[in-house]
C-alpha cells in the first residue's frame, strides 16, 4: 500500500518532467530539422525527376522547353533511338566488359598484395606497405604514366583500361586492415598444423571469411571502372573500343550526332535533344537499381577503413 501511494505521484511527476524535456523550443527546432531535410530531399530529387520526365516527353515539347514536372505528350521515341543506336550499344557492351574484367583483375591483384602484407611473419611488410601508400601522396603525373603505357604497347588496346590503374591504394589498405583484424590468427595456425600451405590457407580459410570485404572492394573498383572516361580519352583512338562514358561524353557534351535515322532536319535536331535525356536515364538506371543493395556494404567499407586512424 505504501508503495502504491508513493509510486503514483512519482510516475506522473516523471511523465510530466519528460513532457517538459520536449520543450516548445525543441519542438520548433525539430520542425526546422524536418524542413531542412525535406529541402535537401527536394533539391536532390528535382534534377533527377526533371531528366526522367523529359525523357518520356515528345521531342518537340523537350526542344520547346515545355516540360517541367510531368511528361508532355508521353512517348518512348527517345528510348527507341537509344536502343537502336549501334555506337551506344557497343559502348554498353565495352563498358560491361571493362567493368567485369577490370574488377576481376583488380580484386585479384589487391588480394595478392594485401594478404602477404597483412601477415606479421612477412618480413619487409612495413617497407612495402610504406612504398604502396607513398604512391597516394606523390605521383609521376600524366605524361610520365602515358609514356609507360605507350612503351608497353598498350595504347589503343583494351589493356590500357584494365592494367594501368589496376590496383588502388585505398582498397588495398582496406583489405590489409580486414585481413589483420577480422580473420583470427588461430584459424591460420590450425591450418598450418594440418599442413596446409599459405596459398591453401588463403584460398580455403581466409577468402571464404572475407566475402563482405571482397564485395566492398569489388564494388569500389566496378563503380570507378563503369563511371570513368579519362583513361579511354587519352589511351584509345579506335572508337569501337570506347567505353560507354566516352560515348556519352561525345553525344551529350560534344553534341556529336548520334546518327538518328530521321530525314527532316528539324525533327532530327529535336530527337537529338530528346535522346540526351533518355540516354542519361538508360546509362544511370543500372547503378540506381543496384545501389540501394550495395550502399550498405559500401558504407561498411567506408567505415572499415575509418575506424580509429
Amino acid at each position: 500500500m505504501v508503495s502504491a501511494v508513493l509510486t503514483k505521484p512519482n510516475r506522473t511527476a516523471f511523465r510530466r518532467s519528460r513532457r517538459v524535456r520536449e520543450s516548445p523550443v525543441d519542438r520548433v527546432f525539430l520542425v526546422g530539422v524536418y524542413i531542412l531535410l525535406t529541402t535537401f530531399l527536394i533539391v536532390v530529387l528535382l534534377p533527377l525527376w526533371y531528366i526522367l520526365v523529359s525523357s518520356f516527353s515528345s521531342p518537340a515539347a523537350v526542344s520547346a522547353g515545355e516540360v517541367f514536372l510531368w511528361p508532355v505528350d508521353f512517348t518512348l521515341r527517345g528510348y527507341e533511338v537509344v536502343f537502336t543506336n549501334s555506337t551506344i550499344l557497343t559502348g554498353f557492351a565495352n563498358s560491361a566488359f571493362y567493368t567485369v574484367a577490370g574488377t576481376a583483375i583488380s580484386v585479384t591483384l589487391t588480394v595478392m598484395l594485401a594478404y602477404p602484407l597483412s601477415r606479421a611473419d612477412f618480413v619487409g611488410r612495413k617497407i612495402l606497405t610504406g612504398a604502396v601508400v607513398f604512391t597516394m601522396l606523390f605521383a609521376g603525373g600524366l605524361i610520365p604514366t602515358y609514356l609507360v603505357v605507350q612503351s608497353m604497347g598498350m595504347l589503343d588496346t583494351r589493356w590500357a583500361l584494365l592494367i594501368p590503374k589496376a590496383v588502388a591504394v585505398w582498397p588495398a589498405i582496406l583489405a590489409i586492415t580486414y585481413f589483420r583484424t577480422a580473420i583470427p590468427d588461430e584459424l591460420r595456425e590450425a591450418g598450418e598444423i594440418d599442413g596446409a600451405s599459405d596459398l591453401r590457407i588463403l584460398w580455403r580459410v581466409v577468402l571464404p571469411l572475407s566475402a563482405p570485404m571482397l564485395a566492398v572492394i569489388a564494388l569500389m573498383y566496378a563503380i570507378v571502372q563503369w563511371n570513368s572516361y579519362f583513361d579511354a580519352l587519352i589511351y584509345l583512338r579506335d572508337d569501337s573500343l570506347y567505353p560507354l562514358q566516352l560515348v556519352l561524353r561525345n553525344i551529350l557534351i560534344l553534341n556529336t550526332d548520334a546518327g538518328a535515322d530521321v530525314t527532316a532536319a528539324i525533327e532530327r535536331q529535336q530527337l537529338a535533344s530528346l535522346l540526351k535525356y533518355s540516354l542519361i536515364v538508360v546509362s544511370t538506371v543500372p547503378m540506381m537499381l543496384i545501389y540501394p543493395f550495395v550502399a550498405r556494404y559500401f558504407t561498411r567499407g567506408l567505415l572499415l577503413g575509418a575506424v580509429k586512424g
Binding site: 591483384l109 595478392m112 605521383a139 609521376g140 604514366t145 609507360v148 594501368p164 590503374k165
Partner: peptide, 29 residues
C-alpha cells in the same frame, strides 16, 4: 617457410613498380 607469400606479392609489386614508380622516374623529362 612462406615462399608462397613472397611469390604472391610479386605481381602486384611489379604493378606498383611499373605504373607508379617508373612514372616517377620518368618525370625526369
Amino acid at each position: 617457410r612462406h615462399w608462397q607469400l613472397y611469390l604472391l606479392v610479386i605481381p602486384p609489386l611489379l604493378y606498383f613498380l611499373v605504373f607508379q614508380y617508373v612514372p616517377m622516374a620518368n618525370a625526369i623529362i
